[in-house]
């Protein structure tokens, strides 16, 4: 990892405005910051920034068994041990590539040495220059591919390498959704985690689950409440929940069309003429700066 501080923006629940907030922060921090997109299963962070690719690195996230038909005698030894139903029996065994987990048990068991493991392309890591004058490291997962946390880990590592090369002091990372492997991979070792939520029962439920994960990592964290005025009672519940878990409310945003309208025009929130939103982002940026310096 580089000396750059990394702020990771996540949300348990989708559609809370995570990427809108992350892109506004990246814009506002300017060229001291570099972007990283860890939402590899629906990579939206680059869309607003007109990325021009500088590097593209294939990512082989898993392996797949391959039958050498000349050696295969159709003995079914591989089919018997495979727990993933990835072998179709026959005069020559056939590997069902989508089902193959890449464990290599069949390679170990085959009496005729007829199976080998091959790297499987599961994604691409890209370094791009973006229109705000800085860089972004992002990635695409092959559709239906293994959503391995390793792709996320490698994107973040690449971002730190680039930050060191270019002397950037900050990385703004659009984290993965959910509470599984990719999000664990997005936040481990981060300097600050921003949890974006909304005052719906689903939002609160998902916040509780993802906050449990984050506090387990002891990373300084805070909450952003988006669409705060949609349901004031639930908004108050989030404030209380934050107090209970030691997570400060870093910013609140109103329920407004500006989020989706600015997206349609491919603009960050900072490039709209909504001064209320702009002031809130600026204030959030200041609070994040002081949280990072205190540490």
């Amino acid at each position: 990892m580089s000396n750059a501080a990394e702020i990771v923006v996540i949300s348990g629940k989708g559609g809370t405005g995570k990427t809108s907030i992350a892109s506004a922060l990246l814009y506002e921090f300017g060229d001291v910051a570099l972007g990283a997109d860890c939402d590899v299963d629906g990579s939206n962070f680059p869309i607003l920034f007109d990325p021009q690719p500088l590097e593209s690195i294939p990512f082989y996230g898993s392996q797949v068994a391959v039958i050498n038909e000349e050696n295969c005698r159709g003995c079914d030894a591989c089919a018997k041990v495979c727990r993933f139903e990835a072998v179709e029996k026959g005069a020559r065994a056939k590997i069902l590539r989508d089902a193959c987990e890449g464990c290599g048990y069949c390679v170990q068991i085959c009496p005729f040495g007829a199976i080998t493991m091959e790297d499987r392309l599961t994604g691409t890591i890209k370094v791009s220059s973006i229109r705000t004058g800085t860089l972004m490291v992002h990635g695409d997962l092959e559709v239906g591919g293994d959503n391995s946390g390793r792709l996320v880990a490698e994107i973040r590592e690449k971002a730190h390498v680039k930050a060191r090369e270019l002397g950037k002091s900050l990385i703004i990372t659009d984290g993965s959704p959910g509470i599984g492997c990719p999000v664990v991979s997005s936040i481990s070792g981060a300097n600050y985690v921003l949890l974006v939520t909304e005052p719906s029962l689903s939002g609160i439920h998902d916040l509780e689950r993802v906050a449990a994960l984050v506090t387990g990592f002891s990373i300084p964290s805070g909450i952003v409440i988006n669409k705060a005025d949609l349901n004031l009672r639930n908004r108050d519940t989030i404030v209380l929940l934050g107090k209970k878990m030691g997570l400060p409310i870093m910013a609140e945003f109103p329920f407004t069309h500006v989020f989706s309208e600015s997206l349609k025009q491919l603009k960050t929130l900072m490039e709209t003429n909504d001064t209320n939103l702009i002031n809130r982002i600026t204030h959030l940026t200041k609070r994040l700066k002081s949280s990072l310096e205190v540490k």
Binding site: G15, T19, G42, N44, I47, L48, V143, G144, L263, L266
Partner: peptide, 20 residues
């Protein structure tokens, strides 16, 4: 989906998966 560039981007991905 939702009628935004993000919605469209992700709709295209999942449509591809369904067709596959």
């Amino acid at each position: 989906t939702e009628p935004t560039p993000y919605g469209l981007h992700d709709l295209a991905l999942i449509t591809e998966l369904c067709l596959k």
